[in-house]
């Protein structure tokens, strides 16, 4: 046996979920629900730290575990927030939980956005559908540390008004002078949508005040969105290695063991979920 493994230290079990309490839950859309949770152990709540763009493994007793992006910002400590869409067994079961129920959570995992490298840069943040989940963390963090960043553009597209996540929050942002918020829907079935109508790609023509060489872009959305948004960002002359994508994969462990998220030698859970476009340019499996 390998002597290196013999150390008699009781290792922390990285698979062990911590029990957390659901503090708030409410519907964001018909099938996406917002959950705010807090560790049961006060010390854990106080020391919770993570990066925007990281994810956690959320467990529902008796059903299973799945990865979810963190939607809250580390600049507002003590709480974790998730937007969860009802798509599978685990999420359906989480949907049925109520405030004050307990839930298992472990993490944070993944690299998250390189916040140090983003300092002093202009940001173009593009989100579609559930892509708002990780990018809300980034935008809130940037706004809480507003002096650290240059121009900030926030582009958010949804299929229709009823499907836009964090609508109220983002409409409030439109009022703010220190962030350029552009919201659009593919089609307005309500007839009352006060913002733009059209694909998210139509918003890019209004991006005027950035210095491309000093700009980082962040994208998250459904797989079809990446290709077209990347084209727009390249037209703006943002360097490929400054276009950051947050990707989704099936995961069973979050720590590079179970193999499900592997693409070539890349583990989405460990090396990602945030990749630069340059990282993935020759690995089409990563995006599509």
């Amino acid at each position: 046996m390998n002597e290196g493994l013999c150390a008699d230290i009781k290792l922390a079990n990285d698979f062990q979920p911590d029990m957390m309490r659901i503090v708030r839950k409410y519907n964001l859309t018909d099938d996406v629900r917002f959950f705010q949770v807090r560790p049961m152990e006060e010390q854990k709540a106080l020391t919770l730290c993570y990066n925007p763009g990281q994810f956690m493994m959320v467990s529902r007793l008796g059903v299973g575990e799945a990865p979810f992006s963190i939607s809250s910002t580390p600049s507002r400590p003590g709480l974790l927030e998730f937007c969860i869409r009802e798509v599978g067994q685990v999420t359906q079961s989480i949907f049925r939980l109520n405030e004050n129920d307990s839930i298992g959570v472990r993490g944070p995992y993944g690299n998250g956005f390189p916040m140090e490298r983003l300092k002093g840069r202009d940001l173009v943040i593009t989100m579609g559908g559930l892509g708002a989940a990780p990018l809300r963390s980034l935008i809130l963090y940037a706004l809480d540390n507003r002096d650290d960043f240059g121009e900030i553009y926030l582009l958010h597209g949804a299929k229709k008004p009823g499907e836009m996540l964090f609508k109220t929050e983002f409409f409030d942002m439109i009022e703010r002078k220190d962030v350029n918020t552009m919201l659009t829907v593919d089609a307005d079935d309500t007839g009352k949508w006060p913002a733009k109508v059209g694909l998210v790609t139509t918003l890019f023509k209004d991006i005027k005040q950035i210095d491309p060489a000093n700009t980082f872009a962040a994208i998250c959305g459904p797989p079809v969105m990446y290709k077209f948004v990347i084209q727009e960002l390249l037209k703006l002359k943002i360097p490929k290695n400054q276009i950051l994508l947050s990707l989704e994969r099936r995961m069973k462990c979050g720590i590079g063991k179970c193999g499900h998220c592997v693409v070539k030698h890349i583990y989405t859970c460990m090396d990602g979920p945030v990749f630069s476009y340059w990282d993935v340019i020759n690995m089409k499996e990563l995006i599509y």
Partner: peptide, 11 residues
């Protein structure tokens, strides 16, 4: 049955 009792579907 256990899963159904808890409101989940069988695997």
């Amino acid at each position: 049955v256990s899963r159904i009792v808890n409101g989940d579907m069988p695997i």
